[in-house]
């Protein structure tokens, strides 16, 4: 597993890829913060980091698929899948190696954001416990999206298609709770409760409000496990389907 993890990290960090995507993320993050700070002029505005995080997760829809789109599709495109599959490494370890590499780059991305609360804490007060909760939620949310992206990448040979479909699915995920609250869905309370059970955004909201609830952790962890298992199954299935 370690050689694959290392190789993936090399492909992110020996090329401008990880730095570019991190720079883009930080740019968007900074933009969000600066508009919030500018809003402070008006009387009704309240500035909170958790709110910033809450607003920033929409950017993940565009950034995470960029990170994950090549995970498996490029291996297939360049024929290097054969190398991995004929090495004495199990498919599960291949999936996990790539997963941890993607998560590492994601952590690298969000690590840069720590600088803003740090600066604020130098001149004022930051509610640290709430901030830590928000970061945990942020981490879970991003990791879950990474798993979605990896699953899609394992299904196609084209990284562009992987990115676009990944974005669509993440978009649907993000607005699932809004959708389930619409008047139309409210007519069917049972369907609504099912949809709400899958909605991840309200669970992220608890984290950003400073609450760590076991049910939310279980939700994200199980979503990650299920999506990784599907990725594993999808790779195996593709091999079998060829014949």
């Amino acid at each position: 597993m370690f050689p694959i993890y290392k190789k993936e990290l090399q492909s992110f960090f020996y090329t401008p890829f990880a730095y570019t995507i991190t720079a883009l993320f930080l740019l968007l993050f900074t933009y969000m913060i600066s508009t919030k700070v500018a809003d402070l002029e008006s009387n009704i505005a309240i500035f909170s980091y958790t709110e910033v995080f809450y607003n920033v997760i929409i950017y993940f829809i565009f950034l995470i698929p960029l990170l994950t789109m090549r995970t498996f599709s490029d291996e297939r495109k360049f024929g290097t899948e054969v190398l991995l599959m004929t090495s004495p490494v199990s498919v599960l370890k291949i999936v996990l190696g790539k997963f941890f590499a993607n998560v590492t780059v994601f952590l690298f991305m969000i690590a840069g954001t720590v600088i803003f609360p740090y600066i604020t804490s130098q001149y004022g007060n930051v509610v640290e416990s709430q901030l830590i909760c928000a970061y945990i939620g942020f981490f879970f949310w991003g990791t879950m999206f990474i798993c979605v992206g990896m699953l899609i990448s394992s299904m196609t040979e084209s990284s562009i298609i992987a990115a676009v479909i990944g974005e669509l699915i993440m978009f649907a995920f993000l607005f699932l709770d809004d959708f389930s609250r619409t008047g139309f869905i409210s007519q069917y309370p049972k369907l609504q409760s099912v949809l709400m059970a899958f909605a991840a955004q309200p669970r992220f909201a608890y984290f950003s409000a400073g609450l760590i609830r076991l049910s939310d952790i279980v939700f994200f962890v199980s979503a990650i496990i299920v999506l990784l298992s599907w990725t594993y199954i999808s790779i195996e299935k593709r091999r079998w389907k060829r014949g």
């Binding site: 090329t15 054969v82 991995l84």
Partner: peptide, 23 residues
Amino acid sequence: PEIPPLYPEMKVKEYLSFCAGLK
């Protein structure tokens, strides 16, 4: 394999080192 399974963005030694790790 028929098409050598190479990572175009890797250096030769790096690639072989990765393969050695896999093995």
